[in-house]
Design a protein around this nucleic acid. Structure first.
Lengths: 214, 214
DNA sequence: GGGGATCCACTGTTGGATCCAG
DNA sequence: CTGGATCCAACAGTGGATCCCC
């Protein structure tokens, strides 16, 4: 987290456009693994790879996210949903939307496309900034309030990744056996898989398409 | 095809609402098979079951179609695509959209919902008339012109049910071995499965939902 | 062949599971 | 336990095949 502004950050990101991911990995002496591209991009941008619950560039409130894209059919199909942050019953009880980690992380996002070629090779694409417009914010907020309410009020067992138009909750842990303690409506403790917030593929797809339409 | 107008036809159709399909079959002494419900509805409406390429009530230009619906989740999900008519290379070469059997059959449709209950029992629903509005007609026309052009100009082998937004072409024959003779771009004869026009499920689903929204 | 449709195997989508690093 | 994501078995959707009547 060194002194950069958005202009500088975007310039750095765009200099990476076209780079094969493998080249980037070699340059930083790292093996690629599931989350590896994201970490590499943060490194290549001169950021500190940390596991803080704050946006990646806290001073600017900017969050960096890779966005896996299939090649062409124009805008390119978004291949996966996007991780936002974990959802813990404790903090959700306290938070309002305005205070939420979800809102803070999504307030300003630098999306760095990672384009998979038909052959399988992956290259970085042209990065772009995104902030939710009023309509998107309204949807995110509605989803967040609905989902948080369930988690915070002991209805976590009722949560499914089918819930939420833009934002969904999914299990997030080393494996399915991992449980945290939750409290149900009656005050009883029970075991529940840790959950995290994700942006649905269709939501980020719409962002990409709007970009392309202009 | 006896003297009826649209008002009378709709009245007769709505009198059938709520009838289990099995009751209707018994009443007419018929066994049910794939196309059976459609024939039963035509009989019950006092129409002649024929295999003419004209609309069912030729004098009125009205086509009667059953529309299989899943129970509830409000409008009810449309379960299948809707057969329109066959597509033969010969006639498509001659026809324009205005003259086409597709346009004539879809100009005025009496849809008779057939609702499948969770248990599997099927009952007739509330019939309704539909005609394409300007937007729908434009889409149908564009699809028809694209698909007809392919068939008429020897590119039938390039046709796939994936083509077309509202209208699609699919094989239509006793089985996959049935072939008719087609002529390719170079004038050579080749074997091609007979094709027919269908309305996509999503298209009729939109019609049903618009109805429900009012 | 035309018309009346439904069936079902395959493909594509995605919810839930998992992996690695700090 | 957080953050960086991707993997893949199970399910949903539908393209192509099929069935019956005239």
């Amino acid at each position: 987290v060194d002194p950069v502004d958005e202009v500088e950050l975007l310039a750095r990101a765009r200099r990476l456009a076209g780079q094969p991911v493998s080249t980037l990995a070699d340059a930083h002496g790292r093996r690629l693994h599931k989350g590896g591209v994201g970490e590499l991009v943060e490194l290549a941008l001169g950021l500190t790879v940390s596991s803080a619950p704050e946006p990646d560039v806290a001073a600017l409130g900017v969050e960096v996210k890779t966005l896996p894209l299939a090649p062409e059919p124009f805008p390119g199909r978004v291949r996966e949903s996007t991780w936002v942050c974990s959802a813990s019953p404790g903090s959700l009880l306290e938070e309002t939307w305005a205070q939420s980690r979800v809102r803070k992380k999504l307030a300003r996002v630098l999306f760095v496309p990672v384009v998979t070629a038909p052959a399988g090779e992956r290259r970085l694409g042209t990065a772009f900034f995104w902030s939710p417009d009023d309509a998107e914010e309204a949807i995110l907020r509605a989803d967040w309030e609905d989902l948080s309410d369930l988690i915070a009020h002991g209805l976590g067992f009722a949560v499914t990744a089918r819930r939420g138009q833009a934002l969904q909750l999914r299990p997030k842990a080393r494996n399915a056996a991992v449980r945290r303690t939750a409290v149900d409506v009656a005050g009883e403790r029970y075991a529940l898989a840790p959950q995290g917030f994700y942006l649905r593929r269709t939501f980020t797809q719409a962002i990409v398409e709007r970009l392309f339409a202009r």
